[in-house]
Design a protein around this nucleic acid. Structure first.
Lengths: 188, 188
DNA sequence: GTCTATAATTCGATAGAC
DNA sequence: GTCTATCGAATTATAGAC
């Protein structure tokens, strides 16, 4: 049986998830999360011992969402090439958010990497889920030797595109670069 | 004649420059800059009206350093291809700092892009100096049509490599990817 | 010009009533 | 479980002595 308070807990996590993405972790206060979720900030400490622990819950939530998305892609697309193309389609589908706030994984890792490396290592799990999945798809494509390096290369390309798209607020650049990556995947 | 206080001003800018890079802008307090520079924080407001204005001075300092570096490269290397290779060499030369703190331009822009877009637009000047210089080199190489897009593409590759190198603390990835970019530049 | 002391605010976190 | 009131620390910024 699920305790009643888990609804409140989820509301806090959902509000924090969006605010940490849009405004950054350190720049988001409990007061803002309280306003967005409608739950008094004093109540937060019943569910989380600290702000760090709330961030860990947000990261766990994101990891779970990513894993569910990848399982769905695996079920929907039979070939690894189609799955990789679906991965790239994600960039175009989230064009507006990407242009405004950058990649949720890249921006969070960069922020935490400065002076909160303990939290950053937890945030790395998001990257690793994607990298592992990409490596599996590249393995299935028959690039048996250096698929891990190739997955890292592809992720770096995507992160670079996301960063420049966000910095220049330029979705045209995003579309052009994703089109190039599509051709690159087709020729793998 | 230069007023005596300009030495103090430069000391503050230098300390802030390094701390903003290593710890981030919002995560660096005046108290830390005072400790690092040996100048009491109350004195800061004689030279800068606010923390934002200090950041603008730091950005101006970085822009000046970048411009001086590019002029030196232009003098040292006669061909555009050599200059582009020198640009890539910079990544290897700053391997340790890049692995630990990421790219100074990319990390600052990402941080400011979240909720301080006014300051971020000032920080974009660093990117633009590089992009303009890269475009000039690509023009000289005879890629007359889409050199601006090509310069953005190259910068995005570099930013992606920097981000992943920093996230994974993996200089091996950096070296491998830079080697690929070197070949890419040679075949332009 | 230089520095100390401190104002004014905001933050994460706690205490305790209900 | 839920919420209000508030603490102590840290922050940017200011006032004013020297």
């Amino acid at each position: 049986m699920i305790a009643k308070g888990q609804d409140n807990r989820q509301s806090i996590v959902n509000a924090a998830n969006e605010l940490f993405y849009r405004r950054g972790y350190n720049q988001t206060s409990f007061a803002e999360i309280a306003d967005a979720s409608g739950i008094p900030k004093g109540n937060f400490y019943y569910y989380f011992k600290s702000k760090d622990e709330l961030l860990e819950a947000v990261i766990a939530e994101r990891v779970q969402q990513v894993k569910a998305m990848l399982v769905e892609w695996d079920a929907q697309f039979p070939t690894p090439r189609e799955r990789l193309q679906r991965f790239l389609s994600m960039l175009l589908a989230s064009e507006e958010e990407l242009t405004r706030h950058g990649c949720p994984m890249g921006t969070l890792n960069m922020e935490l990497g400065k002076i909160q490396q303990t939290l950053q290592s937890r945030a790395m799990e998001m990257f690793e889920v994607f990298i592992n999945w990409l490596t599996c798809q590249l393995d299935a494509l028959g690039h048996g030797e250096e698929t891990s390096a190739l997955a890292m290369h592809l992720m770096a390309r995507v992160q670079g595109i996301s960063l420049m798209t966000h910095a220049y607020s330029d979705p045209v650049f995003l579309r052009r670069e994703v089109a190039q990556l599509r051709n690159w995947v087709d020729q793998l």
